[in-house]
Design a protein around this nucleic acid. Structure first.
Length: 512
RNA sequence: GCGGGAGUAGCUCAGCUGGCUAGAGCGUCAGCCUUCCAAGCUGAGGGUCGCGGGUUCGAAUCCCGUCUCCCGCUCCA
């Protein structure tokens, strides 16, 4: 029984060997947490995108898709909260080797002082009984006052230091407060480092402070800032959705585990705009819809699990994850969030533009609520790849490695091969290729024994192999071999297009 | 970022008490065979042993630095 770790290694090797995923800039020793999709990977990824787009946009009359730029006005990220929330001052304890957020350490310290005050108040309550005037006590008791002024001073100093980005002052504050590491108990700290989770760059050829812009850390904001454009030009009526597939960038502290967590990654998102008060209904609706989509890939249900968030982000009033059993365990694959009207309200405030919708049924205007579905494209890729990767032991004792990809997502739909390289069989096989290539991505292969060629196609997940043999020359029939059952069926060449179309199109999965 | 492990051919690995021209299997390519589920035959290509420096007559092997990957911790909208 292979361990999960071995399994991940096997998948990474396989992905490299067959041209699915390469490490970025490998000849230069690679670039940490960045990967490239090779010739097979690019096809599979493209097919996943197309399938998602069909399911979300093509299958819903009230959802349209956009393609917003990666560069956005810097104020976007102030409004979204990313500038503040994605900027953590970090500090390490040299003895315990633990890393902390400096602001959290200081907050915890402040909290301790606050508890001293509360104790003092409690004592007062006991001493004075019914005659106790808490307000007056807090305003006059010297111990309380002293501690309160301590708190105020710490908070002020911290705020000033952060505003001025003076990290040395933050460290000094921690040292002066004699904050100790909860694990080692020591006060042996490294310098405070700013960890900026957003990538920044300069717009324009002349660099100055005002021209700093960020690479978007999520695609959602491109939808929010265009919500009114799309609503008006597309004559969209609430409820409606805007979908987008695109790259996003995050400077992860720990970016590892193959393509699961990359610095440059791709999201498939849909923001659904609804009437305030109806958000929970739609939240439930999209939960169900998105689970259906994942199920339609034909991957065993045991790979999936739901996780409802207890602790919610500041913008959400409900959130859940669809988790997948990756080789490294259950991890988030897709998030479904009820984002309230937080984002649009923020953009209204920062832009000074009204982002409201006039609802003719209610005869009133409002800022819509938003239900978001956001699935990682690279994670979906990894999920499909890892669930499809199988090392089989056959009855005759031999082995084969097969990617049992959903047929409609497979990079190559069919391989066309002549049984031998003589007697006009290659020519006949080429003829078939010429017909099929307009509708299906096909490979031609005449090298090595038939069995070997079948295995090669199994390794890249090609669902069907079409073999041209001597009988083909007599009656225009070929054998079509199924990847999963390894069974062959003899069919006439005229039937091929129809057979492939039925098995390989999105239709069956989308209507299941 | 810290701690631990690792890095030799496309893949899996051997060689590592310093010493022939750095090897094997699989894969790849060309040819033979003309075969319906890997492993028939012949041949070829492919590595400055992650990179840089040092010790030495001599380094894949020993020492230092560095990069990358894996595991754990920290973080995670």
């Amino acid at each position: 029984m292979a361990t999960n770790e071995d399994n991940l290694k096997a998948i990474i090797s396989h992905a490299k060997e067959y041209g699915f995923v390469f490490q970025s800039s490998e000849i230069y020793d690679g670039l940490s947490a960045v990967y490239d999709y090779g010739q097979m990977g690019a096809e599979l990824k493209k097919n996943i995108k197309d399938y998602w787009w069909s399911a979300m946009v093509q299958m819903h009359e009230n959802i349209v898709g956009i393609d917003a730029a990666i560069f956005m006005h810097p104020t976007t990220w102030k409004a979204s909260g990313h500038v503040d929330a994605f900027n953590d001052p970090l500090i390490d304890n040299k003895d315990s080797k633990k890393r902390y957020r400096a602001d959290v350490l200081i907050e915890e310290h402040v909290e301790k002082i606050r508890q001293k005050i509360e104790k003092e108040v409690e004592k007062g309550t006991k001493r004075f009984g019914d005659a106790f005037d808490e307000e007056q006590f807090r305003a006059t008791n010297p111990n309380v006052l002293r501690n309160q002024s301590k708190i105020d001073e710490i908070n002020l100093r911290f705020k000033v230091a952060m505003d001025e980005e003076d990290l040395a002052a933050v460290k000094q504050l921690i040292e002066e407060l004699e904050i100790a590491c909860p694990v080692s108990g020591s006060k042996n700290w490294t310098d405070v480092k700013q960890f900026n989770l957003m990538f920044s760059t300069e717009m324009g050829s002349v660099a100055d402070a005002a021209s700093t812009i960020y690479l978007r850390p999520e695609t959602a904001q491109g939808i929010f800032v265009n919500y009114l454009n799309v609503q008006k030009t597309g004559r969209m009526k609430i409820p409606f959705g805007i979908a987008q597939i695109g790259k996003a960038f995050r400077n992860e502290i720990v970016a590892r585990q193959f393509i699961f967590r990359m610095r440059e990654f791709e999201q498939m998102e849909m923001q659904f705009f609804v009437r305030p008060g109806e958000e929970m209904k739609w939240y439930e609706y999209w939960k169900t819809e998105r689970v259906k989509w994942h199920r339609s890939l034909g991957i065993d249900e045991k790979y999936y699990r739901f996780h409802d968030h207890v602790k919610l982000a500041h913008y959400a009033n409900a959130a859940c994850d669809i988790e997948f059993d990756f080789p490294m365990g259950f991890k988030e694959l897709e998030g479904i969030h009820s984002r309230t009207d937080f984002d649009l309200k923020q953009h209204e405030q920062y832009s000074g533009k009204k982002l409201q919708y006039f609802d003719p049924e209610l005869n009133e205007s409002y800022v819509p609520y938003v239900v978001e579905t956001s699935v990682g494209l690279d994670r979906t890729f990894l999920a499909i790849l890892s669930a499809s990767y199988t090392e089989e032991k056959l009855d005759d004792g031999s082995e084969r490695t097969v990617l049992s990809l959903p047929a409609f997502l497979a990079p190559v739909k069919a391989a066309v091969m002549p049984l031998t390289r003589k007697d006009g069989l290659p020519e006949k096989a080429r003829e078939i290729m010429e017909v099929l290539k307009f509708d299906f991505n096909c490979q031609y292969d005449e090298k090595d024994s038939p069995g070997k060629r079948y295995r090669r196609q199994d390794a890249i997940g090609t669902p069907y192999c079409i073999m041209v043999d001597h009988q083909t020359l007599e009656d225009n029939t070929v054998t079509i071999r199924d990847r999963d059952t390894m069974q062959q069926e003899r069919v006439s060449i005229d039937q091929l297009e129809g057979i492939l179309q039925a098995k390989v199109s999105f239709r069956k999965a989308l209507t299941a």
